[in-house]
Amino acid sequence: MIYFISGGERSGKSNYAMNLALELSDNPVYLATSRKWDSDFEQRVQRHQDERDQRWENWEEEKEIGKLNITGRVVVLDCITLWLTNWFLDLEQNIDSCLQNAKRELEELFKQDATLIVISNELGMGVHAESHMGRKFVELHGWTNQFIAQKSDRATFIVSGLPLQMK
């Protein structure tokens, strides 16, 4: 089962996803995809880890999520935006290569018999990106979100903490 949860920054996506995971499992996995860029970001990661209690298993994987064995587990994948950022920067902003790698990794993850709760931002609803690099990333992100939404069993859009069921 694949749940796709999208929305804006600080819309309540992660909270919604974590509550859903705890409804589905007594011992869910929180799969963090962020790269710890600086001390401020490390503090943010630590704060998020401290918010989760002993029921949670914390995993970290910056890019190769398809290699993880999630069979039989309930997994919150947080988040596609940071995960794509890692690919985008490491592959020198090559959108085609990033999209190909992202789809391959997601397909490997989606093949497993697990409950996956995928969190992503909706970047294309905000202000038009100023830079060429920003516009390329928004395009990559939008195409990836569309791919996940098509593969998902359920899709929820979060606005101001309120879930809107789309699929």
Rank of each mutant, 00 (worst) to 15 (best):
K167F: 02
W83S: 08
L77P: 10
T81W: 09
E64C: 08
K63T: 15
N145P: 08
G134L: 04
L77W: 06
Q46E: 14
Q146H: 13
R47G: 01
E61K: 15
C79Y: 04
Y3W: 15
H48T: 04
D40A: 14
Q93K: 13
G134V: 03
E57G: 07
D38W: 05
Q46N: 12
N101A: 12
K167G: 13
N58M: 11
H132Y: 12
F41G: 04
L123V: 14
F147W: 15
L24K: 15
E23S: 14
G66A: 05
I70T: 15
K63I: 12
E60N: 11
P28I: 10
S14V: 03
V29T: 07
E92W: 04
D40P: 00
E62F: 09
P163R: 05
F41L: 12
I158N: 02
I119L: 15
V74G: 07
I95R: 14
N58W: 04
E42L: 14
R154P: 00
E92G: 00
L109Q: 04
Q165P: 00
V118Q: 08
W143T: 11
V127G: 02
I65F: 04
M166K: 14
D153H: 14
D26Y: 03
V74D: 06
S34H: 08
L91W: 00
L77Q: 08
L162A: 10
E130M: 12
